[in-house]
Structure formats: structure tokens, C-alpha cells
Amino acid sequence: MKYRLICIECPMGCAIEAEKEGDTVVSVAGNSCPRGKLYAENEVICPMRVVTSTVRATDGRMLPVKTNKPVKKSEIFSVMKKINAQKVTPPVRIGEVICRDISDGADLVAAGELL
């Protein structure tokens, strides 16, 4: 089966054609870099996304957070539910783990700081 994709790895947005036979990607064309090939291979088997959001701190401020690696696209809303159940106490620094293993081994980490 053939898939036409737009790569989301960078702002270039390459138009990629990927072909899958069974569960195997047999060809990827149109990408300008190795990241595009990897994106297309994942996208036709199991699309993955980094989730970014915010968590409210005990003092009322909002802390930007992100998953430290992509999670399954189908899991985005369950990840969001877990994110919205988090609470943090300042100070928090960039990179600090807010929730370990929020989905398939990805951690939720601080993507901003509250001092």
C-alpha cells in the first residue's frame, strides 16, 4: 500500500511517498534527510508525536512540560489526562522529570522553569 505524507520533522515539510507491504516499509521517497525517512517509516506503522502541554504549580503558575520522546499518536489523549493530573512545586528547572514513564517509557519533563 502506498502512502503520501508530509514530513513534520522540520519546517521544510517534504512531501514523502512511502510504500508498505504487510507490516514492512519497502520504500520511502521524497525525503531530503534521514529524519524524513525515519518519520515516514514510523508514520505508516505507528505514528508517534511529542506531546507538549502545561502543568499547574502549587503557587498557581503554569509550567510548560513535554514528553522527552515521541509517544504513540493514539495515546495522546490518555497522556493529556495524566498530564492534567500532575501538580508541581516550584522551583522547577528545565529538564526535571515531572512524571516518569508517562507512556511507553517516555518521561514527562519540564520544558520551562519556575523559580
Binding site: E9, P11, P64, K66, G112, E113
Partner: peptide, 18 residues
């Protein structure tokens, strides 16, 4: 707070605050 910043400059995908 979304990611995608810094790909050109830092070769990594960062959020705005990062």
C-alpha cells in the same frame, strides 16, 4: 509551549521557553 523551535540553530526540537 509547543516544540519545533531550534531545529536549524541547535539541531534539536525545543519548546519556546527552552
Amino acid at each position: 509551549i509547543h516544540n519545533g523551535f531550534g531545529l536549524t540553530r541547535f539541531k534539536e526540537s525545543m519548546t519556546g521557553p527552552e
